[in-house]
Simulated assay, not measured.
Amino acid sequence: MNHANEFWQLWQLVPVQRALVALILGAIGLPIVGVVIIGLDIMPVRFAMMHVALFGIAIGILTGLDPLLCGLVACAISGASLTPLARSPAGLSGAMGLLMSLAIAGALLTLSISGVNANGAFELLWGSILATRTSDVVLLGVLAVLIPALFVLRRRQLGLLLFDRELATCSGVRVNQLTLVLLVLVAVAVAAGIRLTGALLVDALTLLPALAARRLANSLPGMVIAAVVVGLLVNVTGFVLAVWFDLPPGPVLVLAAGAVALAVHVLPDGRRRGWPSAEENGSHASGSVSLH
């Protein structure tokens, strides 16, 4: 009874309420970013942006500016700069590897020369969800509006690009411009998740819900909806369990998202068709690829 009372008292605290709101907003936009990561086949993006965020954080601490804001700006600029190299998934993955190496080298050099406390920078990478600020909630709220809106307004173009870049180009899609927008959104979304779970565990908010959704849906819209639903379920349930058992929320969210992804993975084939394959859609060059 005492534990139950303490649990309900915790929910009266503003930091706990703000963290829950941030997780709900994050579940609306960030899992859709995971769908983009899977569609563009850019899994290394999370690691690259983690290192870029560290570099931005180091610059922020050095200059006295908001470290997370600097990390956010650094990720956005880096995402935009990758567009010319994103001619193919292989080229983009290679660019991410180069960016990762340069970013971590720059971060370590900055920390070493300036005497910045490295522990403080790395602590931000682990996240502190109860330290979520109003500005963090606002950023996640903006992403929760912009990302679904982009999908609704550009569903056909996104479907073509995520399915086949060459097919999208032949169909008149402005591939470079759309790729630029997507890479910036991916980078900003990864940076936005730093406060909640840390860059090292940001997959709980982005990739894992999308991986589960891919097993549950047989179309791009269905995958997006399923990813958001899984994200909401995982974020709310994981955070409630973390508060109840007094555990760090980040790892609990990852374990919850991983458990859902594993659960849907072992479902019978008839219940998890996944994203249509190239063979299933090879005849749809007119742009109806996995869009309905």
Rank of each mutant, 00 (worst) to 15 (best):
G258M: 02
L291F: 06
L82S: 02
G172F: 06
L68E: 05
A227R: 02
A131K: 07
S93T: 14
V52R: 00
L180F: 15
L65N: 09
S219M: 10
L220W: 08
L65M: 11
V229S: 07
P67Q: 06
S283D: 14
R154F: 11
A278Y: 14
R154N: 10
G172C: 08
D136H: 02
S101G: 14
P84F: 05
A259S: 13
A278Q: 13
V73Y: 08
W126C: 06
L108H: 08
L182Q: 08
G274W: 01
G287H: 08
V202I: 09
V228I: 14
V35H: 04
L23T: 02
G141T: 08
R195T: 08
G198E: 03
A210M: 03
V229Q: 04
R18T: 13
D246V: 12
P67W: 07
S128T: 09
D41E: 14
V229M: 12
I129N: 04
L178M: 14
A22M: 08
V230S: 03
S88M: 10
P249E: 09
V52S: 02
L291I: 15
P248C: 09
F239M: 10
R87S: 11
I194H: 06
L162S: 04
L108Y: 13
T63G: 07
V186P: 03
G250N: 00
A257E: 01
E6N: 12
A192D: 07
A103P: 01
Q12R: 15
L85C: 12
N281A: 14
V138Q: 11
C170I: 14
A212V: 01
V254S: 10
G115K: 07
V264N: 05
L255C: 13
G159I: 05
V16R: 03
W244A: 15
L220Q: 06
G222M: 10
E279T: 13
G64A: 08
M96K: 05
I129T: 15
D66H: 11
V289W: 05
G97M: 11
L291S: 11
A263Q: 05
T132W: 00
M49V: 05
L247H: 11
R154I: 05
V35G: 05
G258W: 02
A53H: 01
L208Q: 05
L13C: 09
A227Q: 00
V145C: 11
L111R: 02
A131P: 04
S290P: 03
F47C: 08
P15F: 10
V137L: 11
P31T: 12
L40T: 02
W11N: 09
L220T: 06
I225D: 00
S114G: 10
V186M: 15
F122K: 08
L241M: 15
N176D: 15
V252M: 14
A189G: 11
I28M: 14
G34K: 01
P67K: 07
I129K: 01
D203V: 13
L108M: 15
E123P: 11
G120D: 12
L291A: 10
H265C: 12
A192F: 09
L161F: 05
R156D: 03
V188C: 10
P221F: 07
G79C: 06
N117P: 11
L82F: 03
L82T: 02
A95K: 03
C170D: 13
A48Y: 02
G39W: 02
C75P: 09
L146D: 03
V21Y: 08
N176M: 13
L232H: 07
W126D: 10
L102E: 09
G29V: 09
N2H: 15
V240T: 15
L72I: 05
V152G: 07
R133P: 06
V230F: 04
